[in-house]
Structure formats: structure tokens, C-alpha cells
């Protein structure tokens, strides 16, 4: 690990100043320290934000819930209101990592976790995300865990997390504080970026910005589920995952909010698919149409070709379950 200066900010303003000057925030440390040991990350100053007042889960004025950026993944999944009103979020968190890791991992850090691409985490390999311009080792190389949607010629990495996929299905917002003390909110659905020509940028955070909370809208109700397919049944990242919030209206689908993990550089969502399903009677024919639309532009890279049929099957299984089992 490269040497760094360890700093504790006096408050959020101070943290913002330090970060604007190029320092890096550390929360749970479970991703950043891992990558610092590999020298994939080498910040020269580390700002320990753990003593800032960014904790707590509290109701919002409009009937939603505000989850502080430092709330651990364990605490979020254990919160009674989250379990009752936002079960897809609790389920997605419980599907990720382990209890030990979730006891440290935070809401803000989880959103900002970096890709698990093998070339990104190996400093002897070319990687445009780690070192812009050095090339992409995964294109034409080992790419079993890589993207089938939204990739670019520069980068085919996936966003690896589970929690954010549920947040995307729930239409949650990310609350961000700027270094000048003002704040902005960004929908989780647009917080992560596609790689394009600048794969070094994972998300829309700008220099000096800190995530202060995630805001959930009022409970959506309906049937909520998180289906994760992985190489072993515990303690593994998703190959493909689906977060679904489906409301039935009699025997038709009232609305279906869907988000997908493991497919792209961000939790994937496709409003066309959601529109196609709304107002329709559930059937396998309909679900196949939804999968056709979702996967219209899907492109395998070789080792990850299997993700295309796997996504179809995972979507079908999720929709059958969420709509009460269409044949």
C-alpha cells in the first residue's frame, strides 16, 4: 500500500474542502482498502468520514425514508421499516457479501464500489478505467463477468453491487453535498454512468462531493423481489440479478419497476420494458416480449455470451413469481 496522510474532518464543510483538493473519503473501507492494498487506488490523503453526522434512518416529510450515507448495510437490512415497506432493498443487501462485510460496508460506499473486472484489479494489466489510454484487457480477453448492455470500445466492465439495483427499482434518489455546502439529488437510475470514452468515471460525483444520504420515495407496495444468479449460492457477486417491484391491478399488471445487476456499467433499467408490461395480462408470451426488448441490443463478448439467455430466464422467473405465476 502506498503511504497516505490520514485525516479526520471537523465537519461536512471541512470534508468537502479536503475532498475538493483531491483527498479520498473512506467509510467502511471494505472496497477502498482492498484496492489500496493492490495499489489500484493510491490516494495520498484519506479522509475518514466515519465521525461525520451521516448516520440514521428517518422518515421524510412525504412519507418516504432517508438513509444516511454511513448507515451500514447490516443496519439498513435490519431496519424494521425497510424490511416491511422496502423488502426488495433488504433482500438485495442480504444477497451481497457477508454479514462481516455488511457490518462495515456503508450505504454511500456501497453505491461507489468499483468494478470487479480482473484487469482493473491487476496493475500489471492494461485497463482504461484504472489508467486511461492503456487499453482494455477484457475486450478479447477474459470477460465472463462483463457487460452485455451499454458497453463501449473503451470498457466493458459491470457495476458489481446488489443494493443499488434494488434502489433503482425503487426509484430512490442519492443526496449529495457539494464542497460549497449546497446539495443536490440525483436519481439512483442516473447516478452511475455508462463507460463511453471516459470509463475512469464510474458515476456523476464531482470533485469534492460527498454522498450524504439515499432517499426512498413513499412505499411502493406490490410484490417486491430480488433474484440473484451467481456461481455459488452465497458470498459471490451477481452474474445476473433482477430487482422487481410489481403491482397487480386485478388480473393485469398495474406497474412493473425493474432493474438489473451484472449486465452493465450501471444498474440497468429500460423504461420501454416497464411500459410494455404495464396494463397487460401476465403470460409467458408477454414476458418473452419483455425479454426481447430488454435484450434487443445485448452483445456478448465471448466468455459472457451465456448472460444473454441467463438474463432472459432470470427475468421470466422473476416476472412469473412477481405476478403470481403465469403459465
Amino acid at each position: 500500500m502506498r503511504p497516505f496522510q490520514y485525516m479526520r474532518p471537523e465537519g461536512l464543510d471541512h470534508a468537502g474542502q479536503l475532498l475538493r483538493d483531491g483527498a479520498r473519503p473512506i467509510a467502511g473501507g471494505t472496497n477502498l482498502l482492498d484496492l489500496m492494498k493492490l495499489e489500484v487506488e493510491a490516494p495520498d490523503r484519506l479522509v475518514d468520514i466515519n465521525r461525520l453526522p451521516l448516520g440514521g434512518i428517518a422518515p421524510t416529510d412525504d412519507g418516504g425514508v432517508r438513509i444516511g450515507a454511513l448507515v451500514t448495510n447490516s443496519a439498513c437490512a435490519a431496519d424494521l421499516q425497510i424490511r416491511r415497506d422496502y423488502p426488495v432493498l433488504a433482500r438485495a443487501i442480504l444477497a451481497g457479501a457477508t454479514f462481516q462485510l455488511r457490518n462495515m460496508a456503508t450505504t454511500g460506499g456501497n453505491l461507489c464500489q468499483r468494478t470487479r473486472c480482473y484487469y482493473f484489479t491487476n496493475i500489471d494489466q492494461p485497463c482504461n478505467k484504472r489508467q486511461p489510454g492503456s487499453g482494455c484487457g477484457a475486450i478479447g480477453g477474459h470477460n465472463r463477468i462483463h457487460a452485455i448492455l451499454g458497453a463501449s470500445d473503451a470498457c466493458i466492465a459491470t457495476y458489481p453491487g446488489d443494493m443499488a439495483v434494488a434502489l433503482a427499482a425503487l426509484h430512490a434518489d442519492v443526496e449529495i453535498e457539494r464542497p460549497d455546502g449546497t446539495s443536490r439529488t440525483v436519481p439512483v437510475r442516473t447516478f452511475h454512468r455508462l463507460p463511453g470514452d471516459t470509463p475512469d468515471l464510474d458515476n456523476v460525483l464531482e470533485a469534492g462531493e460527498v454522498i450524504t444520504a439515499v432517499i426512498l420515495p413513499p412505499p411502493a407496495g406490490g410484490t417486491q423481489l430480488y433474484r440473484k444468479v451467481r456461481d455459488r449460492s452465497s458470498y459471490a457477486f451477481a452474474l445476473v440479478s433482477v430487482a422487481a417491484v410489481v403491482r397487480m391491478d386485478g388480473d393485469t399488471i398495474g406497474s412493473a419497476a425493474l432493474a438489473f445487476g451484472g449486465l452493465a456499467h450501471k444498474p440497468w433499467h429500460d423504461p420501454r420494458v416497464e411500459q410494455l408490461l404495464a396494463g397487460q395480462r401476465p403470460s409467458d408470451a408477454l414476458f418473452h416480449q419483455a425479454a426481447d426488448l430488454l435484450l434487443e441490443d445485448a452483445e456478448g463478448q465471448g466468455e459472457n455470451d451465456f448472460k444473454i439467455p441467463l438474463t432472459r430466464r432470470t427475468l421470466l422467473a422473476s416476472l412469473r413469481e412477481a405476478t403470481g405465476g403465469a403459465a
Binding site: G29, L33, D34, D48, N50, Q100, L101, N103, M104
Partner: peptide, 13 residues
């Protein structure tokens, strides 16, 4: 009282 991986946190934290 909570279990954690001591390899992924700094002593100073």
C-alpha cells in the same frame, strides 16, 4: 460486539 473482517479496516479508524 459486531463481527468484522479485521483485514479490511485500519487500526487508526
Amino acid at each position: 460486539g459486531q463481527r468484522v473482517n479485521s483485514c479490511l479496516t485500519l487500526a487508526i479508524m
